[in-house]
Every structure is written in C-alpha cells, then in structure tokens.
C-alpha cells in the first residue's frame, strides 16, 4: 500500500476553520489508523490547488468544485480528481448584520436600512452611504474575499455585473484573518458592514446575519462570472456548491485504499458547525477540535474506516 511503502501523504494546509478542522481529522485518521506519514503545507488555496496538480500535495480536503480556474484546468488535464463529498449543504453569499435591517434595541442600535433585503437595492446612494468607506467616503465599502481566494474573483465580477463598481469600493482585506477581524470588530461595535461570507463557518454560527437576495442562479450567467475573462452584464446568485476532496490523480491510482476512505468520509453539516462552534467557544484550534470530534463522534467516523483502523485510532487517542 501507499503508506506501507513509507511515502508521505501531504495535505493542503488550508487555513479557514472548516478546512483546517477536516484536514486535521483526516490526518489523524490516516496517521493513527493506517500508519501513514502525514504532513500539511500551509498556503493559500490557489497555490495549494496548483500544488495538488503537481502532486506536491496529495489531498485538498475541502475543494469547492468549479470555482477556480486553476482547479478546473487541472481537472481537464486529468491531473486531479474530485473524490466523495466533504460535506453537503455549503452555501455562500453577500451578507449584512441583522441589526442594519432590524436594529437591535438591546444594544441600542437603530435600523439604518430597514428595507434592505436585496442586492438590487445597493445601487441606492443612501444605502452606499451607510456602508461608507472611511478611506473613500463618497463610496460604500464592500468587503470582498482576500485576494487569491477563489471567491474574490467571482465577487469582483458580480460587483461589476450588478453595476456597483461606481458606488462601492471593492475592498480586499488581504488575509482571511483580517476579514474575520473586520467583521467581528464591526459586529461588536454594532456598525454597518457589507461583506462576502460562507457557511459552514464560526462567524455565521456566532453572529446574526442577513444574506442579501440575488437573482436566481443560472448556468450561463455563472459561466461568465466565474471565468476571469467572462462578460459582466448579468449577475446571479452563487450556485449550490459541491464540496469534495481534491485528490491528485497519480496519488489516487497509487493509493486506492485511501481514496476509498475519502469516498465514504462525508461530514454531516451539523457536525462541522458544532465543531466550529466548539473551536470558537473554547478558543481552541482545529487540532483540538479534531481530537474532540474523533473522541466523541465515533459513530460517525467509524463508518468511513475499517474495523482494524477504528481500533487503532481509538487506541491512539487515549
């Protein structure tokens, strides 16, 4: 077998919460249950996708399919394949805090935009003013994904497609931590903020947010939006997304026994959310959350692995 030959399974060290958590769980399963040498390399998603195509990284634990040009190209060239489903029911969109629309009497915050519910209302200068960018006060600030994240390109395209480019600054925070910190800080102070976010995440579990309505998803529109050189005439919602394990093709043919595990390893969305909440509440990192998950949710992950591996993993956790 692959691990028996002493080869290392390298994971993409993706750093958003759910990705880091799932990577840790799978790393532990492979190292404890199947005696694999495991490692993970940190980096941003595009670099790591490229690394997966080059077989420098073997497993990308949370690949949002069809979102990234690098990934799509690697799939076409048959360098990578998508295996199984990491979890089902992921979603993403543009959000504002609930108190912007409904106010929050308990915190003495009045509703600044009581009618706001759809992306089409954003062109209104009064709405843009609520989200004013302190660095360019004449425009609103849209907090996009950090550059290099796949969602950044799509949200930038949408901003153009919805004709918001003139009224909003396309603000890229640089890193995921900066994005989270900006949202948390604004929320704690009850200030208006308009941003991209996705679930499953701790932020979405922790804060009361409203997702802005967008025109329904259609394939033609999405194709233009998700391509770097596509047209920007029409905007539409993010499609429901398939999230899978991205695996290098060479590795997949060398290690069918590992691919078999990945095919079965679908995390229930509730469990992912619970683990993210556990991380946030106890202020622990993904490694601790993964250990907790493996200790307490044996009934879930035991279905993914062989009985022998299950015994070894349980013994290893003690």
């Amino acid at each position: 077998s692959y691990c028996g030959d002493g080869k290392t399974v390298t994971f993409a060290g993706i750093d958003w919460e759910s990705g880091a958590f799932i990577t840790e769980v799978m790393k532990t399963i492979l190292s404890k249950g199947y005696d694999c040498q495991v490692d993970s390399i940190p980096g941003n998603s595009v670099t790591l996708e490229q690394a997966t195509a080059n077989n420098d990284v073997q497993i990308f634990a949370e690949e949002w399919l069809g979102r990234s040009d690098v990934w799509n190209k690697a799939v076409e060239e048959k360098k990578v394949i998508a295996v199984g489903k990491t979890f089902v029911g992921a979603s993403e969109g543009w959000f504002v805090p609930d108190y912007v629309v409904h106010g929050d009497p308990a915190r003495n915050i009045e509703a600044k935009a009581p009618d706001l519910k759809s992306v089409s209302q954003l062109t209104d200068p009064k709405i843009a003013e609520i989200f004013a960018d302190p660095e360019e006060p004449s425009k609103g600030r849209f907090l996009n994904c950090p550059s290099g994240w796949t969602c950044e390109g799509v949200s930038t395209a949408k901003l153009e497609a919805y004709k918001l480019g003139e009224t909003y600054v396309n603000f890229r925070p640089g890193t995921g931590t900066a994005l989270d910190a900006a949202i948390t800080s604004a929320y704690l102070q009850g200030e208006p903020i308009f941003f991209y976010y996705w679930s499953p995440t701790a932020i979405l579990g922790k804060f009361k947010l409203i997702q802005l309505e967008e025109p329904a998803y259609n394939e033609a529109c999405w194709k233009e939006l998700s391509s770097a050189n596509g047209k920007r005439d029409e905007g539409c919602a993010f499609p429901s997304v398939d999230v899978a394990y991205g695996v290098n093709s060479t590795f997949a043919s060398e290690a069918p026994e590992i691919v078999e595990i990945l095919e079965k390893a679908t995390f229930p969305l509730d469990e992912v959310n619970a683990s993210l909440a556990y991380m946030a509440d106890n202020k622990v990192d993904a490694t601790a959350a993964a250990a907790e998950f493996l200790k307490t949710k044996g009934d879930i992950w035991s279905k993914w692995v062989s009985d022998e591996a299950r015994g070894k993993i349980e013994a290893g956790l003690k």
């Binding site: 670099t47 550059s147 290099g148 994240w149 390109g153 603000f171 925070p173």
Partner: peptide
C-alpha cells in the same frame, strides 16, 4: 490588512 498600493498588487499577484 487591506492597505492598498504596490503591496496589495504584489500580494494579489503571488496569491493568484
């Protein structure tokens, strides 16, 4: 942390 200018361009360049 979102300061625009040459640095952002470098970051954007290498990250994509």
């Amino acid at each position: 942390i979102g300061a625009r200018g040459l640095g952002e361009q470098v970051l954007n360049g290498i990250q994509t």
